[in-house]
């Protein structure tokens, strides 16, 4: 990582990462990564397997503690916070393999995000039903999570994060294992949310969707940012092409 890649993110950046480092034993999974994400933007994060994409996500939302560097959300340093505090600071996420609450009803799965809310249960339930409707799961709202198919579980995660209403949403491989029609629904919802002013960091293998959705893209390889910029820049960047096709 050279200084030229360090983004001088504007003051109103929703997310700013400076020199992030994460090691596992001797392996440096994330090596001095810096980038910024502006409010209302979708940032695509791409890279081959093991490039460190999910590790970056896990550092941002506090599941991993960074070994070096700083993470700011809305100008606030969140590097040392625990996941639930980071969630409260306005960062929500989905997981690569859906992690729903499998022995709770779909409604309860959504309510989990709002347990500290001062609103009444009735209001929250109504809102949860609304979001389940948006992802076509309203019919099943009193079923348990474990009764859903894999694709439906991904949608439930999306509804859960919508219910949660964070300013920044981290999506980890949202389109993996999802059939094309669900995938379209997913993309529509992401675009709706973006119109509502939400920001996204999107990790995916699926370059087509990334190119379609992202305002900016960063490319990770072996834990380092090897390229960043707009969609067109990335498509034509020789370093990216080499990382994906070369070796």
């Amino acid at each position: 990582m050279t200084a030229s890649h360090a983004v001088a993110a504007p003051a109103d950046a929703i997310l700013r990462i400076e020199g992030l480092v994460k090691r596992f034993g001797g392996l440096v999974a994330v090596d001095n990564v810096s980038f910024g994400l502006e409010r209302g933007d979708i940032l695509g994060i791409i890279g081959i397997n093991g490039a460190g994409k999910t590790t970056v996500m896990n550092c941002i939302n506090g599941i991993y503690h960074a070994d070096g560097g700083q993470i700011f959300c809305n100008g606030r340093n969140i590097t040392k916070l625990s996941p639930h505090a980071i969630a409260k600071a306005g960062i929500g996420r989905t997981f690569q393999v859906p992690r729903i609450f499998h022995r709770m009803t779909l409604i309860d799965n959504l309510l989990v995000t709002s347990l500290d809310s001062s609103e009444s249960d009735a209001v929250l339930i109504e809102r949860a039903e609304h979001f389940l409707e948006r992802v076509n799961l309203a019919e099943l709202r009193y079923n348990h999570g474990e009764e859903l198919s894999g694709g439906q579980q991904k949608l439930l995660e999306l509804a859960r994060v919508m219910m949660f209403d964070p300013a920044l949403i981290l999506l980890d491989e949202p389109f993996a294992g999802v059939n094309p029609s669900l995938c379209r629904l997913f993309i529509e919802r992401i675009q709706d949310l973006q119109r509502d002013g939400k920001s996204f960091a999107l990790v995916s293998h699926d370059l087509t969707s990334i190119y379609k959705l992202s305002n900016n893209i960063i490319v990770l390889n072996q834990g380092q940012v090897i390229a960043e910029g707009g969609v067109e820049d990335i498509k034509n960047d020789p370093a990216v092409i080499e990382a994906y096709l070369g070796q």
Binding site: N61, G62, I63, S82, P83, H84, A87, K88, G92, R93, F95, R99, I100, F101, H102, R103, M104, D108, N109, L111, V112, T113, L115, D116, G145, R160, F164
Partner: peptide
Amino acid sequence: SRLGKALRAIRDDAQAADAMGINV
């Protein structure tokens, strides 16, 4: 209660519950 929901969420997946803002 809401505490009960939080607890069951933790039982099903503590890390996910944490990520959803629950003080595990």
